[in-house]
């Protein structure tokens, strides 16, 4: 299953390498899409339960980043 994660918040800082590492730890594939300091898109591919786990992990994220919201859309 593939979904688009639209992440908004205060995203400057160490978010990209953190997402990359968390995705590898969980076992989902991630492609980075367009991004700014306040929004970014990801394509996340994996089983539904692991997509949920990816969302949960990202909602917390690294300490120097604040994720306000994650919207998920099917691709």
């Amino acid at each position: 299953m593939t979904e688009r994660f639209i992440i908004s918040g205060r995203l400057d800082g160490s978010l990209l390498p953190w997402i990359d590492g968390h995705a590898r730890r969980i076992g989902v594939a991630v492609d980075f899409g367009p991004r700014s300091d306040s929004a970014m898109e990801l394509r996340v591919d994996g089983p539904p339960a692991l997509l949920d786990a990816m969302e949960m992990g990202c909602l917390l994220g690294p300490i120097d980043v604040w994720i306000e919201d994650i919207r998920r859309e099917p691709v």
Binding site: W18, H22, D52, A53, M56, G57, P62, I63
Partner: peptide, 13 residues
């Protein structure tokens, strides 16, 4: 406050 090695799931909302 950073999940690190933890893998929170939907049940951990």
């Amino acid at each position: 406050l950073d999940p690190g090695r933890e893998i929170p799931t939907r049940a951990d909302m």
